[in-house]
Design a protein around this nucleic acid. Structure first.
Lengths: 259, 259
DNA sequence: TGACGTCACTTGTCCTTATGAGTGATGACT
DNA sequence: AGTCATCACTCATAAGGACAAGTGACGTCA
């Protein structure tokens, strides 16, 4: 029976005590925490209070709870997968993304037509309700089991200048490839990185544990006049993968985003 | 009284109903949700069930609950601050980060000596328990109120070659500046981006709302021989800011990370 | 030996009841 | 008019009880 008194609510004191024990290494990663009943007697509180404390630690991503088994200290291991987002080398005049080919499709791609939202419209420098081709894919890296959601959005205007896109089912990926290999289109893009908590559909598709944020990268490719060509989005669990960028000063002013 | 039946637990059905109402726009952003008592009669469930549903939505970051006032739909607005992480231009032969000067110090910097951990050692290509200078700062962007935690780590070996570092209190920021302006050190670095849920100290320092992930950027600067010079870490609430990278193909193979 | 039922353990769900505490409006008192 | 006590509303915390459901080990039975 550890007497606790400090900060505020009872359950927060219990949570703080357990958290401290975890961070200090008293409870090793992957080890089993005391059961709810044991924690009740240990701290002299009721079951709702214990469960409240556990819920708090769960929301912090410190522990995993498995029905019928108990609570386990989450192994806070670093992400196993590093996604190199810089252009690393050229091959026969074609630029290659280092990790562009690790992914396999876990499902059939889903292609559709849609319109710009506030957020996608801003990235593509288009107004609201502009027509777009869309393609959603669920990707998986077989070596690590990491899953990712991929989306390609191409404005109608751009798509008209590109072969393969008129066909059904349209294949935006092939079109993107075509754009990248064309001389008329300078190879330059902007990536925007965000993080947010997953909605239930993302949780399910990415098979995310509790309290795991989603990393979200939006890539906008530009042509020589710095006009947006298309948008590629990738989202994945922040517990599985990280992003890496190589940045070099080139002694020349970088092209401005807005002319 | 909406009858609900579908998926699993009662509270999940309630949570799903409310979530749907939010996502469909029935409950507008910043609007007040029905009170717990109203939800109890609306769905014919007890208070713990309602609270359980609300806790789930809170963990998803969909709502904010304010004691004594009620539950509000969180305005899922995009981050207001975009941190440009590319080198945008040169000025009198000195490279400048576009947003390098938006920050103000919210507290006195804290400088100290420490040793490499598993994660920092890997980034700096050092073994375990190597000696480092460290400097932690709490930054704030006055125009948006965004807060960020900044950390600089410099190996002793590197620091010995740099003036200003021997002094007390040492000023790693000035030292980093010195390194960047030296000809002997090529201007090139690698940034690694991750996201995780905040620990209580991060929650407090960054003043984060519920269910808000932390974005974490680690920048490692290299010298001409691709040896790591120092490490800079920046972390901030993913609700306030996003990262932006400008990527350009330079027709030359990029330097490899490992020789 | 193998299959299966049971049991003891775990967490999950749901209810009832009670009290504390923050917020804002109302209204009385000065 | 202005100040402040009160009250009705909100969510927060805590306890207790009951039953459902997942898990694994043990023991029985064919």
């Amino acid at each position: 029976m550890s007497e606790i008194q400090r900060p505020g609510a009872l359950y927060q004191q219990v949570a703080a005590a357990i958290r401290e024990a975890i961070l200090s290494g008293e409870f090793a990663p992957d080890s089993l925490l005391p059961s709810e009943a044991q924690l009740m007697t240990r701290y002299g509180v009721s079951r709702p209070t214990v469960r409240n404390a556990i819920a708090a630690l769960r929301a912090e991503g410190l522990i995993d709870v498995r029905h019928g088994k108990g609570s386990f200290v989450r192994s806070s291991g670093q992400p196993t997968l590093t996604l190199e987002r810089s252009i690393s080398h050229t091959r026969e005049g074609k630029f290659v993304m280092p990790t562009g080919d690790i992914w396999q499709e876990a499902e059939e791609p889903h292609t559709y037509r849609t319109r710009t939202t506030k957020s996608t419209g801003r990235l593509l420098q288009l107004g609201a309700e502009e027509a777009l081709f869309g393609c959603d894919r669920l990707l998986i890296d077989p070596s690590t089991g990491t899953r990712a959601m991929h989306r390609t959005l191409i404005p109608f205007e751009v798509a008209e200048a590109v072969p393969l896109l008129g066909e059904e089912p349209c294949k935006p990926a092939a079109a993107v490839d075509w754009v990248l290999t064309q001389a008329g289109h300078a190879l330059s893009w902007t990536e925007t990185v965000r993080a947010h908590m997953p909605l239930p559909d993302e949780r399910a598709a990415l098979q995310l544990p509790d309290a795991t944020p989603v990393l979200h990268v939006a890539r906008v490719a530009h042509n020589a006049g710095d006009r947006p060509l298309f948008l590629e989005e990738l989202r994945f669990g922040a517990d599985r993968a990280e992003l890496a960028y190589r940045i070099t000063a080139d002694k020349q002013p970088t092209r401005r985003t807005r002319a």
